[in-house]
Design a protein around this nucleic acid. Structure first.
Lengths: 341, 341
DNA sequence: TAATGTGTAGAAAACGATTTCCCGGCGCGC
DNA sequence: GCGCGCCGGGAAATCGTTTTCTACACATTA
């Protein structure tokens, strides 16, 4: 009801209003000491009546217990990360935590700069989708500085981190096997950046599938991209110029798949008749594409949710051994692979 | 080089290291008082050598100058907001600010709860895409509490707010006119929630276009949705059962358009031959849909960027009169409207 | 020359919470 | 009945900054 609350209520006012000391108010609010029932009631009523809300900046300063976590992804406009962010945010909200969102654009400098900011903000912990395996030392330092770190989607060298990843090897293997099982002979791969475990693992899965089918992997059919749209477009064009042309294409993430699709369309290639296509990462409109896209779906929302939970557990028990959650992918068969549905 | 920085460097250590007082260090860092050149140099060197970074929680506590802004959208998974968020974040980053991201899910309670959190965090300001026109009083109170508010996409009753919106009336008018110009006779509308200015304005644009063409608006052709996928699907089905059937459909946002598309597909309706379709909101893959979607594109990234800039200007000059930025939409003609390309 | 003004920089207060320290009262055991 | 330990709660210290207050040196003016 207070009309003009130009300055928020402080704990001192609550204490005065309840006729107790600040310490008692604090104890009641945080429940970390026993306070007589009657005083508790008085304090709670005062809090209610004044609409008191503790100042998080002050709390953080004194007790170093922050209610904010930092989330660094490369680009939230990538639908993969959009879902991850949402997963993190929902889990955080359930714990009364807020999320500081940072887009690194895969730029190590920008990432480093954001980490500085998050440390200065005293974020309770960080959830990071690292730009590169070489980020290890920096993140180790952050953790040594007392800020827990949970890795998302990618693992890094040097130091066992809490992390949540998908089984990329298996996912890529499934996709490639699927194409081979449909009778395709020359399965090309547009790989992800090979300085990420994600990129490497998907390459490995691809190779394992070929091997299992007794097909020798042809280096000319493997192109390394950087997970971005343009790479998919450019590398698909390169692959199309080869003779003989590949009759199937597996692309290691969503953006590159869209780029490749554009190249195929421009070249007048029929999908799946001329070239069968399987992508990685599902997205809401993959079934609305022409043709509907067969793809390896990741539980992205879950990825984010679990990463946040892992962070909360870490905050509760800083000395527990690091854990890695591995989630499974799922091959979603639509039309672009040429399977009869 | 410092190896084990378990506790971050404080201003006191910097002061000692440089042989000056804390006050001087603060003055050098913030540049709000003259300090002798030599001392400045000493301080800067000390900062450099110790890797000092001011603690933002402490700064915020004392000077009430926060470097965090709050952003409340209904759902970041909506590509419309994804781009907005990115625009805000980029603009914030350029100013050394970080963004606290909140998804309200269009739920007033959740939004209120987030606003509490953002106030407790002492966010420098809020950028809000309000859930409803009735949010006015709450936001007025927030602003009265000293936290600047910039409205995004929607305006609200009661109180002139800084805001950035698009010309929804004109956008809807263009879309409807386009369908009429293509010779469609019975243009249906799946409208947005009519307790938002956005929903209302798009309805108005639709009506204006009909009027301009001398067509009397038929209430049976207008269905009110809530901007969500399911509403688009359900309402499209309702429209399809009518006799005579509409020969064109304008849908007031992206999610409902996708829902409607599903309904049309399921009913075996050919787009655009049987029913011409125009949506609102462009999205990255709209051109990959089957058929490619004609739609009213909003400058979403710009929307976010400008909202952030407006907030920064407001922080610089709290007493300037409130301003509303109106951005223009653009009709992107693809195949779903039946235009010959 | 004395008084006043100006500018620079240190000492200390302040921000709003949590936590430590301490004291008075009570129960219990001897 | 007395001393000891325990417990509940208030006073004050504390977190790391910014800002106010104060002091001093030097220049300027009457």
């Amino acid at each position: 009801m207070r009309q003009h609350s130009f300055r928020p209520v402080t704990i001192a006012e609550v204490a005065r209003h309840a006729g107790v000391s600040q310490a008692t108010v604090s104890r009641v609010i945080n429940g970390n000491a026993t306070v007589a029932a009657e005083l508790q009631a008085r304090v709670r009523r005062a809090v209610e009546e004044l609409g008191y809300q503790p100042d998080r900046a002050a709390r953080r300063l004194r007790s170093n217990a922050s209610q904010v976590l930092g989330l660094i992804v490369s680009d939230i406009q990538n639908p993969y990360f959009t879902a991850v962010v949402r997963g993190v945010e929902d889990a955080a909200y359930a714990q009364g935590m807020a999320v500081l969102l940072c887009n690194s654009d895969g730029d190590p400098d920008k990432q480093a700069s954001y980490i500085q900011v998050l440390r200065a903000e005293r974020a309770a912990g960080l959830i990071v989708a690292p730009t590169s395996v070489r980020d290890g030392p920096m993140l180790v330092a952050v953790r040594a500085g007392g800020t827990p770190v949970v890795l998302l989607d990618r693992q890094i060298e040097g130091g066992a981190f809490d992390s949540v990843v998908v089984d990329n090897v298996h996912g890529a293997e499934m996709a490639t096997m699927h194409l081979l099982a449909l009778g395709r002979q020359r399965v090309a791969l547009i790989a992800g950046a090979l300085d990420t475990t994600t990129g490497r693992d998907r390459l490995r899965g691809y190779r394992q599938a070929l091997e299992a089918h007794g097909v020798r992997s042809d280096p000319r059919l493997i192109k390394e991209g950087d997970f971005k749209y343009d790479a998919g477009y450019t590398l698909a064009r390169v692959l199309l110029e080869q003779d003989p042309r590949p009759d199937a294409l597996f692309v290691a993430n969503n953006l590159m798949t869209l780029g490749a699709l554009k190249a195929l369309r421009e070249a007048g290639v029929r999908v799946p008749d001329d070239i069968a296509l399987v992508g990685f990462d599902d997205f809401p409109w993959a079934s609305e594409l022409q043709p509907p896209l067969t793809t390896v779906a990741q539980p992205t929302y879950e990825l984010g949710r679990i990463a946040a939970q892992q962070l909360f557990e870490r905050l509760r028990d800083p000395d527990a051994p690091a854990r890695t959650h591995v989630l499974q992918t799922r091959l979603v068969v639509r039309a672009s692979c040429g399977a009869r549905l």
